[in-house]
Nucleic acid binder design. Structure first.
Lengths: 119, 119
DNA sequence: CTGGATCCAAATAGATACTG
DNA sequence: CAGTATCTATTTGGATCCAG
């Protein structure tokens, strides 16, 4: 059982997976759920600047892919909690690394951009 | 000097960085350059399905951010080689992990998607 | 061979307002 | 609180043709 899938192949299903991971807000949501289950409003507050529409879309996608679970409590006012599934937690490992890389290399990137007079 | 940057903050510059990393084809190009310098045509052949326009755009972006270097040989026919910079190689570490995750978890994702009746 | 230039289609994101 | 509904703006991608 070697490498069954290869993202470099044009029609490999792993591309769809990679596409989902690379979606604009996936990294944010998955990382935000790192510390445990979270309500919709909490997520929205945590991920500054995300709109409810986009957050909903992202959560639905992650849910469809089995990365996030949604638990709706039968209460009033409504309460809904999102959490990472085991699969989602496994994805968290690389995505945490990506996040850290982004946060750690801001100066490097900015320096590189500054070095370019006009792009 | 603790955490200076936080991607969760709406205006943190790390967001721009993360955005660039998450760009559609970044993962592909960086991973394709894993094995060493590569010519334009080789990259295009390696990353099946990418169009020259998109590949060019991606390379320019990565170059502007100091992740990829471009070396133009003064030959005819023209020869241009792209390679990862040290910074790009540091990014390769997490991106390689992301790629591997995508390739390894195709069955899981597909199973999850199949579990959803309509979505 | 390495792309740049154009035009266009489609997917994605954002702003804003509103509802169960 | 937890979303929907709309409408628009931006981004992205693909096709095609062309030039150094």
């Amino acid at each position: 059982m070697g490498k069954a899938y290869n993202v470099m192949a044009a029609t490999c299903p792993s591309r769809t997976v990679l596409h989902r991971i690379g979606a604009r807000w996936t990294v944010f949501v998955v990382n935000a759920l790192d510390e445990g289950p979270c309500r919709f409003g909490e997520l929205k507050g945590h991920i500054r600047g995300i709109t409810p529409k986009v957050l909903t879309e992202t959560l639905r996608s992650l849910e469809a892919d089995g990365l996030v679970s949604r638990h709706e409590y039968d209460e009033n006012p409504p309460r809904v909690e999102y959490a990472l599934t085991p699969l989602g937690r496994s994805l968290l490992v690389p995505l945490r690394a990506v996040r850290r890389w982004a946060e750690e290399h801001v100066p490097d990137i900015e320096a590189a951009r500054a070095r370019r007079p006009i792009a």
